[in-house]
Design a protein around this nucleic acid. Structure first.
Lengths: 192, 192
DNA sequence: AAGAATATAGACAGATCTGTCTATTTTGTG
DNA sequence: CACAAAATAGACAGATCTGTCTATATTCTT
């Protein structure tokens, strides 16, 4: 399903511009015309690549999902072999993200919020990402030999999403450190 | 500041209708005209009570903030005298909320998401609620004689917001129980 | 019952929205 | 060079958006 769609320069540029505006201002707030003007692309070019605004958004979420998880994986790999360090590296990644200049919350949480209906394609796509992240955490928890890896992964997911919401509200990175400290305690508890 | 505004039947009815539609479909998704039609109220009545759609939304968030916190307080009071039971009662309240028929995520997280700009009045109002809840948690943590009540309250806030996001994604109440179990562990740890 | 405050319907402005269509031009390929 | 594919500008439809205005009707208070 995450078949990387056929790529073209125009399509990529369009997606990059759309991403930037949507992430800054919100999906419903940004109109197609604004994206086209900003990207310097004709309307029919967009509608030749995407059937609708909704499909464009879904494509953007799927792309962001792939890139975000790849970025986390890279940080985990760079953290060395210690399973607990690898697990906690996820929270360091979070802290770096929160501190980045254009951080503006989690686009998936925001998509869940803007399209609150559970049956909506955008809502479902956004939630798929959260499930995928939780799966990744479960693997790290298993590697760290936690007693109940699935349960710990669930809890870590809660901490992460809570930290993201807090960072969006405060524009500070502190929530990542709080979450990390709690994660460390829980990991210790689950290994004992 | 949360001076309960002058109440009138029309105003209350308008707010009730607006709340229902906004909460179901989203702030940007629901137009003024839709609310007016549903409420059976004239447009000028709305604009006599509220300067703009934005002011209406802010008023709704402030009202919801008062009511939500009062509801949590009532649950805490009903939980008896044991400080730890009182603290954990917050998570029982959450579980009940997640299981309610019209649960559709947290309107404050959704407001943060729909108005991602930190300087926006709606964004700020929504975040104020999260700060107030955290303050409430800190009091409960202090009463429970936790070592670092502010720190524990921060962590519990993360768990709660994470659990809300998860409940919005899954439509299940399980995240409340996960959060509660983790909270119980952390409280024990912080009392030892 | 008289007067003041409130609510009404509905037109209106002016902007914006997504998506379609056409006719032309540019681009890339054999 | 010639042909096909892709992108262009821009008009267009039809709906929707917030907010204003007016002129009439209802409700509340005294």
């Amino acid at each position: 399903m995450p078949e990387p769609e056929i790529s073209s320069p125009k399509r990529d540029h369009l997606m990059a511009t759309a991403w930037r505006l949507f992430y800054r201002d919100g999906f419903r707030s940004v109109g197609i015309d604004t994206i086209l003007a900003e990207a310097g692309v004709a309307k029919m070019t967009l509608y030749n690549h995407f059937a609708s605004k909704e499909e464009l958004i879904v494509a953007l979420l799927e792309k962001r999902d792939r890139e975000l998880r790849a970025s986390v994986v890279a940080t985990v790999e760079a953290a060395g072999k210690s399973p607990s360090k690898r697990l906690l590296a996820v929270f360091d990644w979070l802290e770096g993200w929160f501190g980045s200049a254009d951080f503006n919350g989690c686009v998936f949480i925001r998509a869940l919020s803007e399209y609150p209906d559970a049956t909506h394609a955008i809502h479902r796509t956004a939630w798929n990402h959260k499930v995928a992240v939780k799966h990744m955490l479960a693997q790290l928890c298993t590697a760290a030999e936690a007693k109940n890896p699935e349960g710990l992964a669930e809890t870590l997911s809660l901490l992460i999403d809570g930290a993201i919401v807090a960072a969006h509200g405060t524009r500070e990175t502190g929530s990542a450190r709080s979450a990390r400290a709690t994660a460390a305690s829980l990991l210790k508890l689950a290994s004992a």
